[in-house]
Each structure stands twice: as structure tokens, then as C-alpha cells.
Simulated assay, not measured.
Amino acid sequence: MDLNKIAIFSSISKKMSWLNERQKVLAQNIANANTPGFIPKDLKKVSFKAHVDRYSTNGTLQLQTDESDHLSAGGSNGTLFEIKEIEAGFTSTSPDGNAVNLEDELVKMTETQMDYTMAVNLYKKQVGLLKTALGKKS
């Protein structure tokens, strides 16, 4: 059975691959902390908005119901929430032109490692649920 054909497993696997690649990029930034003129890099974050836009024409999630008697989402048009993009970032450089801030890079690495651990645990939990649904003991 190929678990990547199941959407949740495919999504988690892709997230884990992205986190793995990000960890490599952050490690390269740290390795080049003393390289003159080096500018740190990071992977572009996956846009949840882009995924929503595939299923919606106006960029908002719509509550889907099976019956007309089901509750609406609270807004007049059934909108659950609005997705906003936040831009941030300030980079300072050293006299030799190197822009790597070790503290920032280490924080990013820690966040990435925590996200990866969360994804692994979620994957394990989904496998356990699948085993339970199939009647197998873990």
C-alpha cells in the first residue's frame, strides 16, 4: 500500500521534505558565517493562500455542507477566515559584508527541527489511526 496516495500522508511527506531542505540551507548559512560578502538564504515558505486559491475564486475558505439545514460559518457569506500575508525582515551586515546572524540562524534551525518532529509525530499518529481502522494492533 502506497501511503503517499493518501492526501494527509502526501502532505506530511512534502512538509518533511521541505523542512529537510530548509535545514540544509540554514546549515550552509551557518557554515558561511565568516565568509566575506555572504548573504544568508532561506527557502520560500509554502503559501497556504495559494492552496486555498486553487479551490476558491475569491481567496477565502467557504464552509461546505451536505444539507441546507446545516449551520453557516457565521459570516453573511459563510467565510471562515481571511488569509493575510505578513512581510518581515531586517538584515544587518558586518563590515566585511557578511549578513549572517548566528542567533537568528540557530533560532530558525530550532524551529525547523521542532516542526519536523511535529510532522513525524503526526505521520506516526495517522499510521496508528489507519492501523486501527484496518483492525490491526500496533
Rank of each mutant, 00 (worst) to 15 (best):
K125W: 07
I86K: 07
K136N: 08
S47M: 13
L122W: 02
I39V: 10
A73T: 07
I86P: 00
A99E: 14
S17D: 14
K125G: 05
F90T: 10
K5L: 14
N20C: 00
V52E: 13
S68H: 02
E82R: 06
N101S: 12
T60C: 04
V100P: 00
S68C: 00
G59S: 14
N32Q: 05
A31H: 02
D96W: 01
G78S: 10
L106G: 02
V120T: 13
N29C: 08
I30Y: 03
T57V: 13
Q23F: 05
K5D: 15
L3F: 12
T35F: 10
I8G: 00
Q62A: 15
D104A: 12
N98R: 06
T93N: 04
N4V: 09
L63W: 01
I6V: 15
N34W: 00
R54E: 15
D42V: 10
M114D: 07
S11L: 11
T79K: 08
K44L: 13
Q64E: 14
W18F: 11
K124W: 00
S10Q: 15
V25P: 01
T35D: 07
T91L: 13
A7E: 08
P95I: 14
T117E: 14
V120P: 00
S92Y: 08
K45N: 11
V107I: 14
V46D: 12
T117D: 13
T57S: 15
N58P: 01
Y55Q: 09
E105N: 01
K15F: 01
L129E: 15
G135S: 09
A31L: 13
S138T: 11
L80E: 10
G59I: 12
F48C: 08
Y55N: 11
S56F: 06
L130Y: 04
S47H: 05
G97C: 11
A119P: 02
K24D: 14
N121G: 06
S13L: 11
A133Y: 06
D66A: 09
I39F: 02
E21K: 07
M109L: 15
K44P: 01
V127C: 01
E21A: 13
A27Q: 06
V46A: 09
L122C: 02
L129D: 14
T112C: 12
M109Q: 13
Y55V: 13
A99Y: 05
L134A: 11
I12S: 09
N29R: 05
H51L: 14
L19N: 03
D66P: 00
A7V: 14
T65K: 02
V107S: 06
Y55G: 10
K49L: 13
I6A: 04
L3P: 02
K131L: 14
M109S: 09
P95F: 06
R22A: 08
G75P: 00
T132H: 00
K15I: 02
N34H: 04
E111Q: 12
